[in-house]
Every structure is written in structure tokens, then in C-alpha cells.
């Protein structure tokens, strides 16, 4: 086995982080995407722009601001300290928070598109049949948006696995707590351990391809587009 125990620990940690992040993002992102898809509010543009920011910002910018904001002197850091949670940088919880922000658009945007594509008259029909809004959401909207959920979950997961700059800043590279695969690969390369770097990097490449290939072949939404 060319992978060391440290490599395996990093892989396990990465999977844990990506699973948790995807879960949190589906919970938070669904109502947000629904609101963005349906609202006529004048805040829609601003909120949509904030959601999309991680797409265009370099991860180091995001990581740097998170480090400062979550630090003991930062506004969010003061909040977490007041809540008795201490400060989040260098903890696994801190990584989850950072990853959620980083992968937010990858979950929200597919969901928003899926919700926007649902014809208004179907929801109106549900309402005339006396379905409560929540009822209509779960029994009409969610099933219709299933391809969107699949895309959101896969992209959110894969993007978190591929994250590097943010976790490096927020994580502090602690074995089994914040040292994820991408950081481990970086360490191997920096330490000139190119063989070990290849094993992990090749694995990452293969994983990413297989996941995206599966998404683009199996998902009816993307299949129709192409």
C-alpha cells in the first residue's frame, strides 16, 4: 500500500468534512434557493451576488477574511466566544463553517435553477386543491426539482473535497483534525515527496472524474442539456 496512515487519515477526514458540509448546505441552501427562485424582493440581486461571491473570489481572500473574522478580535469570533464555543479557526467545526461558505454557490445555484423551472401553475393547482404551501413544496416542488438536488449534492461534495486555500488558512494543518487530502498533497509536493503526491493526486483526479462523469451521465437534467 503506497498510502501512509497519515494519507488515509487525511482521506477519511476529507470525506467526513465533505459529507457534513453537503448536509448542512442542503438544509440551509434549499430555503435560500427557493426564496431566490420565487421572490420579487429588491434584495434578490444583492443576496444572489453574495451567494455567488465564492465563485469569483480567490480562496485565499475568503480564507484570510474568515481567519480575521473568526479570530479572537473579529466580530464572528467575539460572537462564538460569547456563546461559549471559543474561536473556530484550527478546529474541525471551523473547517465545516468555512467549507459551507466556500461551496455555497455550488449547492444554491443548481437548486435555484431547478426551482425556477417549476411552472407556477403546478403550484397554483396544488393550492386550489388546498395543499398548504409547505405541503406543496414537499410534494410538488421537491420531486420536480430532484435532478437539481442531485446536482447540488454532488457538486457541493466534490467542490469541498477539492478545496485547498481556505482550509489551509483556517485549518492550521493539524493531523486528523484539519489536515485534508488537498493539504496533504501540497505537503508532499513541498517536501519533494513526488511519488506519494502522485498517489493521492491521481486518486483525487480519478475520484473527481468518476463523480462528474456519473453526474453528467445519470442526471436527466444535465443529459437533456447536452
Amino acid at each position: 500500500m503506497p498510502l501512509t496512515t497519515a494519507d488515509l487519515a487525511a482521506i477519511w477526514l476529507t470525506l467526513k468534512l465533505a459529507t457534513l458540509t453537503t448536509g448542512v448546505l442542503l438544509l440551509v441552501g434549499t430555503p435560500l434557493a427557493w426564496w431566490l427562485a420565487r421572490t420579487g424582493s429588491r434584495w434578490k440581486g444583492a443576496v444572489g451576488a453574495v451567494v455567488a461571491l465564492p465563485l469569483v473570489l480567490p480562496p485565499t481572500v475568503l480564507g484570510f477574511y474568515l481567519l480575521v473574522a473568526l479570530g479572537p478580535a473579529g466580530p464572528l469570533g467575539k460572537l462564538t466566544q460569547a456563546a461559549g464555543l471559543g474561536t473556530l479557526p484550527f478546529t474541525f467545526a471551523g473547517l465545516v463553517v468555512a467549507s459551507c461558505l466556500y461551496s455555497l454557490p455550488f449547492v444554491v445555484q443548481p437548486l435555484q435553477n431547478a426551482f425556477a423551472a417549476i411552472p407556477e401553475r403546478l403550484l397554483e393547482a396544488a393550492a386550489t386543491l388546498r395543499a398548504a404551501p409547505l405541503d406543496a413544496f414537499f410534494h410538488v416542488a421537491v420531486p420536480l426539482a430532484r435532478p437539481g438536488f442531485l446536482t447540488a449534492a454532488v457538486l457541493g461534495f466534490a467542490h469541498t473535497v477539492g478545496e485547498f486555500g481556505v482550509v489551509l488558512m483556517i485549518g492550521g494543518n493539524i493531523p486528523e483534525k484539519t489536515r485534508v487530502v488537498s493539504v496533504q498533497i501540497y505537503d508532499h509536493v513541498e517536501a519533494l515527496e513526488y511519488a506519494q503526491a502522485h498517489w493521492l493526486a491521481g486518486g483525487m483526479l480519478l475520484f473527481s472524474f468518476v463523480v462528474l462523469f456519473a453526474l453528467y451521465t445519470l442526471n436527466p437534467a444535465t443529459r437533456r442539456q447536452t
Binding site: 481567519l67 480575521v68 479570530g71 479572537p72 478580535a73 479557526p89 484550527f90 489551509l168 488558512m169 492550521g172
Partner: peptide
């Protein structure tokens, strides 16, 4: 980056 960790007070 080590300096940044200390300068921001996180460490």
C-alpha cells in the same frame, strides 16, 4: 502564514 496565525491572535 505562521506569522499570520499569531498576528491575527488566533494562535
Amino acid at each position: 502564514q505562521t506569522h499570520q496565525f499569531a498576528a491575527s491572535g488566533n494562535a
